[in-house]
Amino acid sequence: MSRGLITAIEIDGAGGDPGAWRGPEVDPRAILTGELAVRAAQRAEAAGVDLVTFADALEAPDDVLDQVSVRLDALGLAARVAPVTQRIGLLPTITVTHTEPFHVQASVATLDHISGGRAGWIADVSTSAEAAAVIGRREPAPAAETWREARYVVDAGRRLWDSWEDDAIIRDAATGRFVDREKLHYVDFESPTFSVKGPSIVPRPPQGHPITGIRVSASEALEAAADAELVFLPDSDDLSTQVQELRENARRSVTLTAGDAGRSVTLTSGQVVGPLVLVSAAVQPHVDGVEQLASLIEAWAAAGVDGVQLRPASLELDVPVIAEQLLPVLRERGLVGSGERGGSLRGRLGLRRPVNRYARSAR
Rank of each mutant, 00 (worst) to 15 (best):
S2G: 07
L5G: 01
T7L: 11
A8C: 15
I9H: 03
G13E: 08
G16Y: 13
D17S: 15
G34A: 08
A44V: 00
F54H: 07
E59G: 15
A60D: 15
S69T: 14
A74R: 06
A82Y: 05
G89T: 07
E100W: 01
P101H: 07
S107C: 07
H113S: 10
G117S: 05
R118E: 12
A119W: 15
A133F: 04
V134M: 14
E145F: 00
E145N: 03
R148S: 12
R151M: 01
R159C: 06
D162L: 11
T175I: 03
F178R: 09
P199G: 09
S200C: 09
Q207C: 01
P210G: 08
A218T: 14
D227G: 05
L233Q: 10
D235R: 13
T241W: 04
A261N: 13
G262V: 14
L267T: 13
G270R: 11
A282M: 11
V287D: 06
A303T: 10
V308Y: 01
L315M: 10
L315G: 04
D318Y: 10
D318Q: 15
A323D: 01
A323R: 02
E324W: 00
L327I: 13
G334L: 10
V336Y: 13
G339K: 09
G342Y: 06
R348Y: 13
L351C: 04
R352I: 03
A362P: 07
